[in-house]
Measured scan of single mutants.
Amino acid sequence: QWKVGDKCSAIWSEDGCIYPATIASIDFKRETCVVVYTGYGNREEQNLSDLLSPICE
């Protein structure tokens, strides 16, 4: 189960590419979260089910 502060990978809606991110907040009722893309600072809402394991850098 994901928690705030977890590192993950998420698909950015603008280009469909996968980027490393950190979970900033979680809404368990809606099963969504807000991620912050590492190195970019962009925030975006994602479905918890769409999150991927962190990418090894």
Rank of each mutant, 00 (worst) to 15 (best):
N47S: 07
Y40A: 07
T22D: 04
L51H: 02
V34D: 02
Y40W: 13
T38Y: 10
I23F: 01
L52S: 02
D27W: 12
E31V: 04
P20A: 12
G5K: 00
E57Y: 13
P54D: 06
N47T: 08
I11K: 09
E31M: 15
D15K: 09
E44C: 04
K7L: 12
Y37N: 02
S53E: 14
I23W: 01
D50N: 08
C56G: 14
I26C: 03
L52A: 01
L51G: 03
R30T: 12
K7G: 10
K3W: 14
V35R: 00
G16N: 06
T32M: 07
Q46P: 04
G16V: 07
A21T: 06
T22G: 02
I11W: 10
V35H: 01
G39Q: 09
V4Y: 09
S13Y: 09
D6W: 09
T38H: 11
S53C: 08
C17A: 10
K7E: 13
E45R: 07
G5F: 07
N47G: 06
W2A: 06
V34C: 02
K3T: 11
V4W: 06
A21W: 07
V4S: 02
D50C: 05
S25N: 02
T38A: 11
E31N: 14
N47W: 13
I55D: 14
K3G: 14
V35S: 02
I11V: 13
I23R: 00
K7D: 11
F28M: 11
Y40V: 11
G39S: 09
S13P: 04
T32P: 05
E14G: 15
Q1I: 07
G16K: 02
Y19K: 01
I26Y: 00
G41R: 04
G16W: 08
V4D: 14
I26S: 00
E45L: 07
N42W: 15
S53F: 10
L48G: 03
Q1L: 07
I23T: 03
P54M: 08
C8S: 00
G39N: 10
L52R: 08
P20W: 12
N42Q: 11
C56P: 15
A21Q: 01
S9D: 07
N47A: 10
I18Y: 14
V35N: 02
W2M: 09
W2F: 05
L51T: 04
R30N: 12
W12E: 03
E45Y: 03
V4R: 00
G16T: 01
I18R: 12
Q46Y: 03
S53Y: 11
I55H: 10
V4F: 05
K29A: 13
G5H: 05
V4C: 12
T32S: 02
G41F: 03
Q46I: 09
P20H: 10
C56D: 15
I11L: 07
I55M: 13
W12Y: 10
S13L: 08
I23V: 07
V4A: 01
S9W: 15
Y37T: 03
E44M: 06
E14M: 14
D50G: 04
L48D: 00
S25K: 01
N47R: 14
E14I: 15
C33I: 08
E57P: 12
T22R: 06
T32D: 04
C56A: 15
C8A: 00
V4E: 13
I11H: 05
Y37V: 05
S25V: 09
Y40M: 15
K3R: 08
T22W: 10
T22V: 14
A10P: 02
C56V: 15
A21E: 04
G5P: 10
Y19M: 04
V34R: 00
K3M: 13
L48P: 01
G41P: 05
T32Y: 05
E31A: 13
V34Y: 03
G41L: 06
Y37G: 01
S53M: 14
C56R: 09
E57C: 13
K29C: 06
G39Y: 14
A24T: 11
E14F: 14
A21N: 01
C17Y: 09
Y19V: 04
C17P: 03
E45K: 05
Q46V: 11
E14H: 14
E44Y: 05
L48W: 04
F28R: 12
E45V: 12
F28W: 15
L52D: 03
R30M: 10
L48T: 06
T22S: 06
G41W: 07
C8I: 10
A21L: 04
I18L: 12
S25E: 12
I18M: 06
Q1Y: 13
Y40Q: 08
V34T: 03
E45M: 06
C56W: 15
C8F: 00
C33V: 12
G16R: 01
S9Y: 15
E57H: 12
W12C: 12
V36Y: 03
E57G: 13
S53R: 13
L52P: 03
I23A: 03
E14Q: 14
C17W: 03
I55Y: 13
K29N: 13
S13I: 09
C33W: 11
K3D: 14
W2E: 13
C33E: 00
T22N: 02
Y37R: 01
V36R: 00
L51R: 01
C56T: 15
S49A: 13
E31H: 10
S13T: 10
C56Q: 15
P54Q: 06
V34I: 14
L51C: 06
S49Y: 06
C33F: 09
F28A: 11
D15M: 09
L51I: 09
N42P: 05
P54A: 08
T38I: 12
Y19S: 03
K29F: 13
D15S: 02
Y37A: 02
E57M: 12
Y40S: 15
Y37D: 02
T38W: 13
I18K: 01
T38S: 09
D15C: 09
K29R: 12
Y19F: 05
P20R: 04
L51W: 04
N47P: 09
L52Q: 04
E14T: 09
A21K: 01
E57A: 14
C56L: 15
V35I: 12
Q1W: 10
S9N: 11
E44V: 03
A10M: 06
T38E: 14
D15W: 08
L48M: 05
A24W: 12
V35L: 04
W12V: 08
G39W: 14
D27K: 01
D6N: 00
V4N: 07
V36G: 01
E44N: 01
K3A: 13
Y19D: 04
I23M: 02
S25Y: 08
D50K: 01
N42D: 11
E45I: 11
G41S: 06
A24E: 15
L52F: 12
C8P: 00
S13H: 08
L52C: 05
I26G: 02
D15Y: 06
E57T: 15
S25G: 04
W12P: 01
Q1A: 10
I18S: 05
L51N: 02
T22Y: 09
T38N: 08
E31C: 09
G5C: 12
D15E: 02
N42T: 14
G5R: 00
V35G: 01
K7C: 12
P54I: 08
P20M: 12
E44D: 08
S9C: 15
Y37W: 05
N47I: 07
T32V: 10
V34F: 06
W12S: 14
S9V: 09
K7H: 11
S9L: 15
Q46S: 06
K7V: 11
D50S: 04
I26W: 03
L48N: 05
A10N: 04
V34S: 01
Y19G: 04
F28P: 12
D50H: 07
G16I: 08
G5Q: 06
N42K: 10
S9F: 15
E44F: 06
P54E: 04
V4K: 00
D15F: 08
S49Q: 10
W12G: 00
Y19C: 01
G5M: 01
Y40L: 14
C8G: 00
Y40G: 07
S25T: 11
G16S: 04
T32G: 06
D27H: 01
E14C: 10
C17K: 15
S53A: 14
Q1S: 12
G41Q: 06
Y19I: 04
V4P: 15
L52V: 05
C17S: 06
K29P: 08
W2D: 15
S9K: 08
E45D: 01
